[in-house]
Design a protein around this nucleic acid. Structure first.
Lengths: 381, 381
DNA sequence: GCCACTTAATCCACGCTGTTGTTTAACTGG
DNA sequence: CCAGTTAAACAACAGCGTGGATTAAGTGGC
């Protein structure tokens, strides 16, 4: 309020006032600072921040480091760590090297303290998996389905069955919930699918509540490409490019997943890239997806994608691109090389460099793992 | 933690722990939840939330409404309003109609409790203005400059002089600071300009600290197009399209201004829209900016912009587009009509509708007013 | 014109948060 | 062995929003 020169203050995210209001302000779903916060929200926020810091550190962080990184006092960290320990989420795991005094006690996540279920509802396959707190997949399964042909009933039966298998003897109170990734468009707030192309029987299906009811677990739904961006940690300004049957992008900007006004952001495949290009199934001409499909060879196809990604990087000033989806996984080296080449060519200015391009390490599980990440976010904020 | 079905909890933004750590976590500038929050941060957050709600309401909100909208209890709102009143920011302004009991006491901002200075450093003009808490411009001035030719010294002298004139007898402790919008690229965190095209003498200039030092006021810098999006309230998912000498976009996504990894997001003019198009001054071919410039008539130019905006809306799921910049202001009706037509044509699917398209009401002051909004954000969060 | 009823806002006591100041624990180095 | 140093916990505390009771200020029936 008084220093003559200052950077904008660092900001953190914190849950809104919780106990009294289940759904605080009716309007303005993704509004900015309109929600107040009370003490329990503060506590939850700080607990989540500490957990996120421990997770980000990989293995072994001391309380001192947590205090420094969080901006909280050592005493506050002590208390928070104590609470998290009581909940079974954190344990002391060894000691660090002394720097001249008492050595630091290292803290680590208890991976199996909680579990998250992730599912990807694809057009021709259902992928389900169970992930621990560190985001490691401990069990996964992929079964063929026919999303449009079978209709919701049969697919949901199968989903329920698969999730039950995944959970086995895991105590249900240790399961954070089920995240379900689906092709868009959908309404994430309402938990309802919209008209999935070619699958009219799924239109207006209350997928979230249906799954939650069948399994007795909290459920969340997410667009597949958006889920993908949550499959791992990474830059606060990154995109997950999902090239499968269609082309989508999941966006994390300013450290936050971006879903847009109607939770349908990431429609990357239908960016017009060449108005004189081939007609696309969406009705317009020269969409990235259509140009990709019309490419004469894989290298050219990867180049088209690279052009579109270059646009994305420039527009949003990203520094990390993660690739996923079957088309990419079929020729990962080709896509990596070609996209990197286009980015270097199109963005020579150091203002836009460096940009890290990689293939999602979780491979074919990326989207389902991201869906699990959605429920993990309840702990990590 | 236990309800079987749940939407993701509403989130609010809150400043990080403040007193002890001026700059909490060295790394990860726009990281997510890595920063903890203490009680004073909680208080500041809630005060900002209440002020933002009062501002958003326009004129006259009661404590009851604030409690409902914020999720806080009536008692908490009472205390917060009291504190804000003591600071001179809020006053009671009349009574609402009774709904069967004691009528609600309406609260309103005190517009001249604090002031914000905004400046736009253009290539050929310097715009400065003073705005009150409601975002109303009470004084403004535009003077011609030659950014590239004059060099920093002369321009900064002029800026200092103009700001002093704007402030007049205003007590300096009531001035929140100076926001300065400039053509990019720049490093907002460091407060330093980069190579502004055609103006090498400005490269690496520590603009923020220079201005802060000369005026003895807090200063912030921002890309011009990004500043523009802060010139008024609006949807949590909106873009400001700035068509002047160049073409840029300011983005508010998820209720937060997005600046990207290197604070240079919004490079909208050099989105490739047609690889076979004319060569652009940036070196690539078929950039929106080049296509716009090559258009045979104004209507076609507006149509090119519309195509690019359609891409943007689809990618980010925006529901509001605000237009600004001299080229738009020269023919606002044409741009509005053409862009709306393209959007309706390209995005017939109700998933992407409605999208509001408008011209910034602050007109030629939009960017400078947005720069002022940058410092107002210190109060409103 | 009175009075029961309703709604708004405050008063007061309280629980819980992170903070400050102090003490104990555990290791380094001369 | 002991002074010095760093980590972590203990104890007292200030300040936040909460909950329950109280006061303020209207409406509407009779």
């Amino acid at each position: 309020m008084s220093s003559p020169s200052s950077t904008p203050p660092e900001r953190a995210t914190l849950p809104a006032a919780n106990p009294p209001s289940e759904k605080p302000s009716g309007a303005n779903p993704s509004g900015p600072n309109l929600a107040g916060a009370n003490l329990s929200a503060l506590r939850d926020h700080n607990a989540a921040a500490v957990l996120a810091l421990v997770r980000a550190a990989g293995s072994g962080v001391s309380r001192v480091e947590l205090a420094r990184a969080s901006g909280l006092t050592a005493q506050a960290i002590s208390k928070i760590v104590q609470r998290l320990g009581d909940d079974g989420l954190l344990v002391e795991a060894g000691r660090g090297a002394s720097t001249g005094g008492k050595p630091r006690t290292l803290l680590a996540l208890v991976p199996d303290a909680r579990w998250a279920i992730g599912a990807q509802l694809g057009r021709d396959a259902l992928t389900v998996l169970r992930a621990d707190l560190t985001g490691r997949v401990v069990a996964d399964r992929q079964v063929p389905i026919d999303l449009a042909g079978w209709g919701p009933g049969r697919v949901l039966d199968l989903l329920t069955e698969q999730v039950s298998w995944l959970l086995g003897a895991v105590p249900r109170e240790r399961v954070l919930g089920v995240g379900i990734a689906s092709p868009g468009p959908l309404d994430q707030h309402a938990g309802v699918l919209h008209q999935v192309t070619g699958a009219p029987s799924w239109d207006r299906l209350p997928l979230r509540d249906e799954v939650a009811g069948r399994l007795g677990l909290p459920a969340l739904i997410e667009k597949d490409s958006t889920a993908g961006v949550l499959s791992g940690l990474g830059s606060p300004n990154r995109a997950f490019i999902h090239l499968d049957r269609g082309l989508g992008a999941g966006l994390v900007l300013g450290g936050t997943v971006q879903r847009g006004a109607r939770t349908n952001a990431g429609e990357f495949g239908h960016q017009t890239l060449d108005p004189s290009g081939p007609r696309c199934r969406c009705g317009n001409t020269g969409c990235v997806e259509a140009l990709w499909a019309a490419a004469r060879n894989p290298r050219e196809a990867a180049g088209v994608l690279g052009e579109a990604i270059a646009n994305l990087v420039r527009l949003l000033d990203l520094d990390e691109i993660v690739l996923g989806g079957r088309e990419v996984l079929a020729a990962p080296e080709l896509y990596l090389a070609e996209i990197r080449a286009v980015l270097t060519d199109r963005l020579p200015d150091p203002t836009w460099q460096p940009v890290t391009v990689s293939v999602a390490p979780s491979g074919p599980n990326a989207v389902a793992l991201g869906a699990a990440g959605l429920v993990l976010a309840r702990l990590f904020g």
